[in-house]
Structure formats: structure tokens, C-alpha cells
């Protein structure tokens, strides 16, 4: 039932001895070499380099920096914009991941029923995944445009909004935040639904039969049988979504670009502001290190969950 990360668990360690095995081992490393080298160069080196930059200051776009010691980290403590971005990042993660888990699971349960046209439901679930996040945010911004937008127009046609005083959706901090939550939940539902769907298909039919024989209602079956059996999948999905949501950038950048004011600025946008607008690679890297450290907690959790499900 370990759908996710199953390859990781099936990787068996061998202890090659003979000449044949040694040749096999050599072939394996030969085939892995390009990938390992590429990931070292473009994955590991940049991470270490970012760490180094976080102890540098001054300069412009990374050139001519001087050693800063802990100055950048101390600067964080008194940077109100950093704290508000951090707060938004954490709140965004909490709200959207909860929403995604609930809506995604519901979608998966629906798409797991058998009915004519089920493929349509599955295609509909898949669709938000395939649409570019940034482009999608532009469409949403247009839909919620206060003057030419679809939503206000519909509300005006229904007589709910006075055309003279349209709702300025993206002009109010509260409404913009709310819409970002809705958009983020909408966009990532599919990812949750797909994983849960795979988990649902791993549950043997006999389990449901047994529940039915015992006289359990649909609701009871869901809460006492299905969801407990999905626990490992749900846990992994939860962690993966949390990691993703902490790193959110394109969705917000293309929707509100952090506005109005800095109301919807998260850590990703703040890093981008520092490095691209101010050219301050040192401070930008420092915030990136903080974000990575927060994410790291969840990466470790993810790895532990993967390895633990394997022992069952």
C-alpha cells in the first residue's frame, strides 16, 4: 500500500563479491554518474553557496561583497517586513494545506466511485495541475478585476453589487488574502486528489465487504475504515504539500505581486525583492537560508515517514 516512495523502499542493498557482481556495480555507477554529477553541481553547490552568501554583505548582485559575520541574521531580528512575510508564509501554508487536504480527499473519494463519465471527473481533477501556475494566476486576476472582471459582472447581473461601486477584490488586504487562499486550494487540489486516489485503489475490496456485513453506514465506513487505511498516504501528502506551500512564489507573484501594500508578501516574494530589486544577494540569501531551514524540518519528517512505512 506504500504507493508513494515505493521505489525507495524496494531499493535493496547488495553486497557484491564476485567479478560478475563487481562488473554490475561498475555499470550501475557509470549509469548514475551523470545524474550524481549534475545534481552535485546544480543542486548541492548552490545550496552551500547560498549559505556562504548569507554571511556576506554589500556589493551589487553578488559582486564585491564583503564578509558580514552574523550581521545579516541580526538584521532579520529587526526587519518588520521579514516578520510579516514569515507570518504570511506560515499562515498561507496552514490554511491552504488544510483546504487542499480536505477538498482533494473529497475529490478523490468522488472520482473513485464507478460511474459513467468518471474519466471526465479525473480529467477535471488533473486539469489545474497542468495549467501553468503563473498564467493561471493572471486569469484569476482578470476574473477578479474590479471593472472588467467576470465575478463582479456576474454579481452585478444578479443585482448583488451596484455597478457604480464594484467590489475591489484585490485592493483590500483581507479580500486579496482570502482570494489567494481560494486560488491556492483550487490549484493544488489535484495533487492531493491524485495521491489519495492511488491510495484508495490500494485498499482491497474485501475491507469494504466486511464493513458492509457488519452493518456500517457509508459515513461510518469512511471515518472508521477508509480514512484510517489512508493514513500513510495522507501523511506523506500532507508533508509534501507543506513543503510546496512554504516555497510558493509564482502563484502569489502573478496574482497580487505581494499587494496591496505588503499584505500578501510571503518569504519567496521577499527574497525575490531583495535579490532582483535591491541586488542584495547577501540578505536575500540569508532569508533563503531561513526558508530552507524551515523546509528542512518537513523534509526530514518526509524521509522518516517514507522509511517507516517501509517496515510494515
Amino acid at each position: 500500500m506504500a504507493t508513494i516512495g515505493a521505489p525507495l523502499l524496494q531499493a535493496k542493498e547488495g553486497s557484491p563479491r564476485g567479478p560478475l557482481e563487481r562488473r554490475e556495480e561498475r555499470l550501475a555507477w557509470l549509469m548514475l554518474l551523470p545524474v550524481i554529477l549534475a545534481l552535485l553541481a546544480l543542486g548541492v553547490y548552490p545550496v552551500l553557496s547560498t549559505l556562504w552568501f548569507s554571511f556576506q554583505q554589500g556589493g551589487s548582485f553578488g559582486l564585491g561583497t564583503t564578509s558580514a559575520g552574523l550581521a545579516n541574521y541580526l538584521r532579520l531580528l529587526h526587519d518588520d517586513q521579514f516578520w510579516s512575510a514569515l507570518r504570511f508564509s506560515l499562515l498561507y501554508s496552514l490554511v491552504t494545506v488544510c483546504g487542499q487536504m480536505i477538498c482533494g480527499t473529497a475529490l478523490a473519494l468522488f472520482a473513485n466511485r464507478s460511474f459513467r463519465g468518471r474519466w471526465l471527473a479525473r480529467a477535471a481533477i488533473l486539469f489545474p495541475w497542468a495549467i501553468p501556475t503563473a498564467t493561471n494566476s493572471v486569469i484569476w486576476a482578470y476574473m477578479f478585476n474590479d471593472q472588467y472582471g467576470l465575478v463582479n459582472s456576474l454579481l452585478e447581473h444578479l443585482g448583488l453589487v451596484n455597478p457604480a461601486h464594484p467590489i475591489v477584490w484585490l485592493g483590500s488586504a483581507q479580500l486579496a488574502t482570502l482570494l489567494i487562499y481560494v486560488l491556492a486550494i483550487w490549484k493544488a487540489n489535484s495533487l492531493v486528489a491524485l495521491l489519495v486516489l492511488a491510495g484508495l485503489q490500494g485498499i482491497p475490496e474485501e475491507v469494504y465487504e466486511a464493513a458492509r456485513v457488519d452493518g456500517a453506514s457509508r459515513w461510518q465506513t469512511l471515518w472508521r475504515v477508509t480514512l484510517p487505511l489512508l493514513r500513510p498516504v495522507l501523511l506523506v501528502t500532507l508533508i509534501l504539500r507543506t513543503i510546496e506551500s512554504l516555497q510558493a512564489f509564482d502563484l502569489i507573484s502573478a496574482f497580487t505581486n505581494g499587494g496591496p501594500g505588503n499584505a500578501t508578501q510571503n518569504l519567496g516574494l521577499y527574497i525575490y525583492l531583495q535579490i532582483q530589486q535591491f541586488g542584495d544577494f547577501g540578505y536575500g540569501s540569508t532569508i533563503a537560508v531561513v526558508l530552507t531551514a524551515i523546509t528542512l524540518v518537513f523534509i526530514v519528517l518526509y524521509m522518516r515517514t517514507l522509511l517507516r512505512t517501509g517496515t510494515r
Binding site: 531499493a11 548541492v44 548552490p46 553557496s49 547560498t50 512554504l246 516555497q247 526558508l291 530552507t292
Partner: peptide
């Protein structure tokens, strides 16, 4: 080796943007 490959995919791209 597999753990190395998987864990690297989870790092925030922000930790790679600048040096890259």
C-alpha cells in the same frame, strides 16, 4: 544514493537561484 536524489528535489529553489 537514492535518498540523495530524492531529498535534493525537495530543497526550495530559492536556495539555488542566486548562485546558479
Amino acid at each position: 544514493a537514492l535518498l540523495f536524489v530524492v531529498s535534493l528535489s525537495l530543497f526550495p529553489p530559492f536556495s539555488q537561484v542566486i548562485p546558479l
